[in-house]
Amino acid sequence: MAIDPVDRTVGLNLRALRLTAGMSQERLAAALGVTFQQIQKYEKGANRIASSRLIAAAGALGCGLADLFAGTGADAIAETGATGAAGLPRDPQVLRLAARLDALPRAQRGPLITAFRVAVDTVEAAGTAAAAGAPHPTDIDTTPRCGAPPLSH
């Protein structure tokens, strides 16, 4: 039997919210009264999650029910005011990095966020320039002109 797209999306949201909360499959399983293998099946969308377990999962993860249904179409209907999980990254490495960054004191976090933004802006600008046919900075001719002294390294 094929996996229903709604079950798959709810499962992906469950996984994203669990990882964002820094919770293991084992810990979530204990909170829901199931095995960690059952959590794996939920996260893959292979097994449907009973409504009572969805409520328990939302409580354990500290989110709203709408967060679990984000991206399914049901989230547009459920006007709970909860922030949707659809905007969360699905890559576990990105989620772990965000959780580690969030755990740092604000004084340490701020400079790292600024450095990250600068790095991303630089990568995006290089990609945009390359797409527009601009030369890569290392491809630019730095030969001195008009008798200027050569650049020293």
Rank of each mutant, 00 (worst) to 15 (best):
L32P: 02
A30I: 09
S52K: 13
A74W: 12
D75Q: 07
L61H: 11
I55V: 15
L65W: 12
Q37S: 14
Q40E: 11
E43L: 11
L54N: 03
E43F: 12
G71H: 08
Q38K: 04
A66S: 15
F36D: 11
N47Y: 01
A58F: 00
L61K: 06
A70Y: 08
S51M: 13
G62L: 00
A30K: 13
A74T: 12
V34T: 14
Y42V: 03
E43V: 11
G62Q: 02
F36T: 07
G62Y: 10
L65Q: 06
I49P: 08
L65M: 14
N47A: 07
T35Y: 01
A50I: 07
T72P: 03
G62I: 08
A56N: 09
D67Y: 07
Q37L: 10
I39S: 03
I55Y: 08
A50P: 00
A60R: 07
R53S: 14
L65S: 01
G59I: 00
F36R: 15
G64Q: 11
Y42S: 01
G62P: 07
L32V: 10
E43G: 00
Y42F: 15
T35A: 08
A30L: 12
A30F: 08
G71V: 03
Q40Y: 10
K44A: 13
Q37A: 14
G73Y: 12
S52Y: 04
R48C: 00
F69R: 09
A66G: 12
D75N: 05
A60G: 02
A60S: 08
A70V: 02
Q40N: 10
I55P: 10
A46N: 08
Q37G: 15
K44H: 11
L32D: 01
I39Y: 11
T72Q: 02
L65E: 04
A46F: 03
K41P: 03
L54A: 11
L32H: 05
A74Q: 15
A70H: 02
Q40T: 10
Q38S: 04
G33V: 03
A31S: 14
E43T: 02
G62T: 07
V34C: 12
L32M: 02
G59Q: 12
A57G: 00
A56L: 12
S52G: 13
A31C: 03
I39V: 15
Y42D: 03
L32Q: 09
L65P: 07
S51E: 14
L65H: 01
Y42G: 08
R53H: 13
A60W: 07
L68C: 08
A56W: 03
R48P: 00
T72M: 06
A70E: 06
G45A: 00
D67P: 09
R48A: 15
